[in-house]
Simulated assay, not measured.
Amino acid sequence: MRKVLATSLAMMLSLTACGGPTTDNLTGEATGKSAGATEILESVAVSGGSDEEPPTVEFDEPLEVTGVAARTVAEGDGDEVEAGQHVHYQLVALNAEDGDVLGDTYSQGDPKLLSVNDTLKEQDAELYEVLVGTKVGSQIAYTRPSPEPAEGETASPEQLIVLKVISAVPEPEVLSPEDVKKLDDEGQLPTFTFDDKGTPEVTIPENEASDDLVVKVLEEGKGDVVAESDSITANYSGWTYSEGEKFDSSFDRGEPATFPLSGVIKGWTKGLAGQKVGSKVLLVIPEPWAYPQPSQGQPSGTLVFYVEIVSKEAAE
């Protein structure tokens, strides 16, 4: 459940300037925002493709990548992306020299997630400006000069990346106790069984998970209340909601884990702050508050956790 700093799409594609609307390659009609040296992308056009398959991308070869550029090359017909939402996307990367496909996320399964929030605005203000107001379904072309290689290393090819905005979801909230009880009464929450060592196993219902954070206290402890600034020691197990696959468990390792509550995924911070030491808690964590940019074997999508809070230590 610990945070891991990953290279996000935003960091990979830091834009340098934000401009006004660009035009469709075929109709000449305004299609959305542009950023940077957008004249680089004037010849880029996309056709075909779907949410599961990359489009065909054509451009005048070679593409002279003289600066950073972003341009909407095909506008979708969905709702506009709003500030504070989280964008699901797929992308395909091409060699700017000859158009060869270098890789794509479509072949990796589910779309990836990018948060259009204040962090993105601070780290990549121009990308933030491009995404806010973009319609779901749009195809956005990006490029930037490749970094100079280290001594003895081979230079990376200049790339053109075409990103499709698949969907946009709002920032989650903590589901109210009344709504949690309603889901529980309807049999729409995961349940647990335990072996003779107290190790939990989960049964996940077939319904879609809540878009908001579910916190259900299975057994309330009698200890002190945990603050967000505290470090806690806890036993836990975690599973993917979609497949019920266990991906982490302190029970399996034979000892609880200790960590600052401010240094874990947001669903843990929001779900465990305010709980009492000794409590046993179910968390159903939506993707934006789990691992929105999973790496190093981290799971994607909505997650389920069983957590027993063993102790806490206040921050000094």
Rank of each mutant, 00 (worst) to 15 (best):
V226L: 09
E228H: 06
S229C: 04
D230K: 10
D230Q: 08
D230M: 11
S231Q: 14
I232V: 14
I232M: 08
I232Q: 06
T233W: 05
A234T: 08
N235K: 13
N235Q: 14
Y236W: 11
S237K: 15
S237M: 11
G238M: 04
G238I: 02
W239A: 01
W239T: 01
E243K: 14
E243L: 08
E245S: 04
K246W: 04
F247M: 06
F247L: 06
F247G: 00
D248L: 07
D248S: 10
S249F: 11
S249Y: 13
S249L: 10
F251Q: 03
D252E: 15
G254C: 06
G254W: 08
E255Q: 12
E255L: 07
P256Y: 03
A257P: 02
A257I: 15
T258F: 01
T258A: 07
T258S: 13
F259R: 13
L261M: 08
S262C: 01
S262I: 04
S262P: 01
S262H: 04
V264A: 05
I265N: 10
K266H: 04
K266Q: 13
G267M: 10
W268G: 00
T269F: 09
K270M: 14
K270R: 14
G271A: 07
G271Y: 14
G274I: 12
G274K: 14
G274W: 09
G274M: 12
Q275P: 05
Q275W: 14
Q275K: 15
K276D: 03
K276W: 11
K276Y: 09
V277K: 05
V277W: 08
S279Y: 08
S279D: 04
K280P: 02
K280G: 00
K280I: 06
V281C: 05
V281S: 03
V284M: 10
I285M: 07
I285T: 12
P286Y: 14
E287K: 07
W289H: 04
W289Q: 03
A290Y: 15
P292M: 13
P292R: 14
